Simulated assay, not measured.
Amino acid sequence: MPPTPLTLLEPLHRQHVTHSLLSPHGRLLDLRQPQVMGILNITPDSFYAGSRLGPATEAEVLARAEAMLAAGATALDVGGYSSRPGADDISPAEEKRRLLPALAALRRAFPQAFLSVDTFRAEVAAEAVATGADLVNDIGGGTLDADMLATVARLRVPYCLMHTKGTPQTMRSLAHYEEDLVLTILRFFRDQLAALRTANGGQPLRDVLLDPGFGFAKTPTHNHELLRRLPELAPLGHGLLVGLSRKAMVYKPLGLAPEAALNGTTALHMLALQGGARLLRVHDVPEARQTVLLFQNTFDILITG
Score class of each variant (00 low, 15 high):
residue 171 M to D: 04
residue 280 L to F: 06
residue 129 V to W: 03
residue 114 F to K: 03
residue 173 S to A: 14
residue 90 I to G: 09
residue 283 H to F: 07
residue 118 D to L: 10
residue 29 L to E: 02
residue 130 A to T: 08
residue 111 P to Y: 10
residue 58 E to H: 05
residue 95 E to V: 05
residue 281 R to F: 11
residue 287 E to H: 13
residue 75 A to R: 00
residue 233 L to F: 11
residue 251 Y to T: 07
residue 56 A to D: 06
residue 101 P to D: 08
residue 233 L to M: 10
residue 263 N to T: 15
residue 211 D to W: 00
residue 173 S to T: 15
residue 172 R to A: 15
residue 61 V to A: 09
residue 129 V to G: 09
residue 159 Y to E: 02
residue 74 T to L: 14
residue 247 K to N: 05
residue 286 P to W: 03
residue 61 V to W: 03
residue 210 L to R: 04
residue 87 A to C: 07
residue 183 L to F: 10
residue 167 T to G: 04
residue 170 T to W: 11
residue 280 L to Q: 04
residue 136 V to P: 00
residue 124 V to H: 00
residue 302 L to T: 13
residue 264 G to Q: 03
residue 284 D to W: 01
residue 47 F to I: 11
residue 257 A to Y: 12
residue 197 R to L: 03
residue 250 V to R: 01
residue 8 L to T: 12
residue 19 H to W: 10
residue 228 R to H: 14
residue 58 E to V: 12
residue 45 D to E: 12
residue 259 E to W: 08
residue 89 D to A: 14
residue 113 A to D: 01
residue 262 L to V: 14
residue 280 L to S: 04
residue 197 R to D: 11
residue 113 A to R: 00
residue 7 T to G: 11
residue 120 F to K: 02
residue 90 I to Q: 03
residue 235 P to Y: 10
residue 146 A to F: 05
residue 171 M to G: 00
residue 177 Y to T: 08
residue 116 S to A: 15
residue 206 R to S: 12
residue 82 S to R: 05
residue 256 L to K: 11
residue 287 E to Q: 13
residue 230 L to Q: 03
residue 118 D to Y: 02
residue 152 V to G: 04
residue 62 L to D: 02
residue 42 I to M: 11
residue 226 L to K: 00
residue 282 V to N: 05
residue 305 G to F: 05
residue 102 A to S: 13
